[in-house]
């Protein structure tokens, strides 16, 4: 019951529901339905006393939290996980938006084929996919062999943040593309034409009309990808080796290597709270800018 890869998220966020706050419902539903029960259990364990002999002693304490909060190491890992989440989300957004736009605006026939291509990363199991990346990215991998053959310097692409970023973006980008494509499909192409005939160039028409109207999809997509990223375990641990430490990895290690169930649980709960807080701030900000554009 670690905070493992959450591939259970619905792939079809409600693109056309009005009121952008409803759009976080899919992400919220994932959090609530699939995490509440295990988390309640976690919550309970997190206030028990650690013990070297049993999983924990049935003695209530807040010590686990106090120790975590006071430890700067906790905060550095929290920050690093958040950073990875934001970087993956940002990279996915930048890559996904043009793709989503293209997808939403292509003729019906082509759209189906493109859709299959977009979700193809999800059709391969996480381990196989990750090993695939390892073949490409490692120091003796395809990319570096190519660089060497061309007489260039090799670039460390694995066992560092870059490798993790690439791996995470690859898996989670479909969620971003589908969220955004859904909303763009709901934006009448005639609106952009109307803007054009009123004197806006193609670029300006896009920024003033299509983009603001696609924001609900952008918000849903970014929330989804962020949540999936900060809770992912397999990709950061395989592609990151021992150099990349995120909260899920730390939670698993605390429990499986230090056998500290209460400590690991407390960390998971703490991070859950921080993630919720961050999302809350993000949605507030997004809601505000959404209203002023």
């Amino acid at each position: 019951m670690s905070v493992a890869e959450a591939t259970v998220a619905p792939a079809r966020p409600a693109g056309r529901v009005s009121g952008r706050h409803l759009l976080i419902l899919p992400a919220l539903a994932v959090l609530v339905v699939f995490f509440v029960a295990p988390y309640l259990n976690l919550l309970l364990i997190s206030v028990m006393t650690p013990s070297p002999r049993a999983a924990y002693l049935r003695v209530l304490t807040l010590d686990n939290y106090a120790r975590l909060v006071r430890d700067p190491f906790t905060w550095s890992v929290v920050w690093h996980t958040m950073w990875l989440g934001m970087a993956t989300t940002a990279l996915s957004l930048v890559l996904a938006y043009p793709l989503a736009y293209h997808l939403a605006r292509s003729p019906r026939g082509a759209r189906g084929a493109l859709m299959v291509l977009v979700i193809s990363p999800l059709l391969v199991g996480v381990l196989i996919r990750t090993y695939g990346w390892m073949i490409l990215l490692q120091d003796t991998g395809l990319i570096n062999q190519l660089l060497r053959a061309l007489g260039l310097r090799t670039v460390p692409l694995m066992y560092n943040n870059l490798g993790v970023l690439i791996g995470l973006t690859h898996v989670f980008i479909p969620f971003m593309v589908l969220s955004i494509a859904g909303t763009i499909q709901g934006v009448d192409p005639e609106l952009e034409l109307a803007a054009r005939s009123l004197g806006a160039g193609a670029w300006r028409a896009f920024w003033r009309v299509t983009f603001p109207l696609s924001l609900p999809g952008v918000i849903a997509g970014t929330v989804l990808v962020f949540v999936l990223t900060v809770s992912s375990y397999v990709i950061p641990s395989l592609l990151g080796g021992f150099t990349v430490l995120t909260i899920p990895i730390l939670v698993v290690r605390t429990i499986t290597e230090l056998f500290n169930w209460p400590g690991g649980s407390a960390l998971a709960i703490l991070f859950f709270a921080i993630t919720l807080g961050a999302l809350w701030v993000y949605l507030r900000l997004a809601g505000r800018t959404g209203r002023t554009t």
Binding site: D188, E190, L191, L193, A194, R196, L198, G201, V209
Partner: peptide, 20 residues
């Protein structure tokens, strides 16, 4: 010419008002 340089005022059948 591209649409933005034609100076045509267009009224669409479904109006195409900007909903936002």
């Amino acid at each position: 010419d591209p649409p933005e340089r034609r100076d045509c005022g267009m009224v669409f059948q479904h109006y195409a008002l900007f909903p936002h």
